[in-house]
Structures are given as C-alpha cells and as structure tokens.
C-alpha cells in the first residue's frame, strides 16, 4: 500500500513516515504543496495524507487539484478545528480529517479504515486463539467456557476483536462504546478494561488484551 504524505512540518513528516513504514506502508513525503501535486500526478497512491497549512499551494487547493483527476482517498490534518474548516475539507472531497494534536493510534486507525476497500463485512463470529465471540447470540467463550459479560463489556470486547491487532486509544473506545465524544478526564476506560481483563484474561494463561503504553489498548495474540 502506497501512501503520499504532504506535510511541511519536518518533524511531523518524519515521525509519520517512520511510523507508517513500520506498519508496513510505503510512504512518499512531500514538503510543499507543489511537490505534493507533482508526486500525486506522477505516481499512483492508495491514500493521501494532506496537511492543510502548506507553503505555496495550500492543502485545500491541492485537494481540489487532486479531485479533478482522481478519487484516491484523502485524509487531511489540520490544527484549526473550527467546524467550518472541517466542513470545508469534507465538501472539497476529503474522506476524513484529524485535528492536531492527534494521537498516533487514532491516525493509524483512520488510515486502516480508509484503506479497507469495499463495504465492511458483516461479521457475526469472531475468533482469536481460543476466544470466540458470537455477535448474534451475544455469547463469548474461551476454551469452550462461557464467559458472562455485561452489555458494555460485551460491546468493548466486540470493538477490540473487530479491530484485532489495532491499537485503540482511550478516546476512541469511550466514543465507540459509550458515545462519549469528549475527553471526560477520568479513567473510565482503564477501569472498564481492567474489569474486562478480570473476566477474559485473568483465568487463562494466554493473555489477549494488551496495554500499549502511552497509546491505548489492543486485542492480539502477540502484543
């Protein structure tokens, strides 16, 4: 998967390039709008990550130029999160946006979602090692043993297993499980994970829920 990153901030561009490369993507970096335009027209990319504040040709203009010829998914980054800015980006044809400062886990999740082609599969059964989640019957078993989870614990595990291997930030989890779209400055998510672990991981030797320090949580066989 090839990603074009247009970002004039050298440090930002640098760590994003490193991070995305580590996640297995081929990353091309452009430090100005014109370079970005050139690269986007010369090569085919699967995703373009675009900073809005760029010297010369700004992100909005570049987005318009790109949209004239191609439908490559575009994720834009902005430090201004006024509603008008977001709406403008989406109206110009961007697919998603992130407001700086964003969590790297969040960026990775958005990139994965945008690169996932086609409609999301309607999965009813999830299987990870000896953990099995049946969405229709709302049942969770490990090593064949039925685990009794509350509604929210089930929703949390469902989120983790449907994004298996991805690191989910606390804000993402709070938003998806409880529809809390703001940072409530509490350790609600940590407590919920702790309680889920007590039921899903603690009785078994193979641990599946992992804490990624400084980022969030992930469900995987190997951290």
């Amino acid at each position: 998967m090839r990603i074009l990153l247009v970002e004039d901030e050298v440090k930002t561009a640098d760590y994003l390039r490193k991070g995305l490369s580590e996640s297995g993507y081929l990353v091309e970096v452009a430090h100005s709008g014109l370079d970005g335009q050139h690269l986007a027209q010369e090569h085919a990319f699967d995703l373009i990550i675009l900073d809005v504040q760029l010297p010369g040709l700004d992100g909005w203009q570049l987005l318009q130029i790109i949209r004239r010829t191609q439908q490559t998914p575009v994720l834009f980054l902005t430090a201004r999160d006024a509603v008008e800015d977001r709406v403008k980006g989406l109206e110009l044809g961007a697919d998603d946006y992130l407001v700086k400062p964003f969590s790297y886990a969040e960026l990775l999740a958005r990139v994965r979602t945008l690169l996932r082609r086609g409609p999301p599969r309607e999965v009813e059964h999830f299987l990870l090692a000896d953990l099995h989640l049946d969405l229709l019957r709302r049942q969770v078993t490990r090593q064949g043993q039925r685990l009794s989870l509350t509604n929210k614990e089930f929703a949390l595990l469902h989120l983790l297993i449907s994004r298996e291997g991805e690191v989910l930030s606390r804000a993402q989890i709070a938003s998806q499980v409880w529809q809390m779209n703001f940072d409530s400055d509490t350790n609600v998510v940590d407590v919920a994970i702790r309680r889920l672990r007590a039921k899903v991981d603690d009785p078994f030797s193979l641990k599946l829920i992992h804490t990624v320090r400084g980022m969030g949580y992930t469900l995987a066989v190997q951290p």
């Binding site: 929210k152 409880w178 529809q179 809390m180 509490t186 609600v188 407590v191 919920a192 702790r194 309680r195």
Partner: peptide, 13 residues
Amino acid sequence: EQLCEYFEGMAEE
C-alpha cells in the same frame, strides 16, 4: 442511564 453505565465501573470500584 447512559451516564450511569459509563461511570458504572469507576463507581463500583
């Protein structure tokens, strides 16, 4: 109800 569900874990602890 939504808020109580959200804070349930913390409260129980």
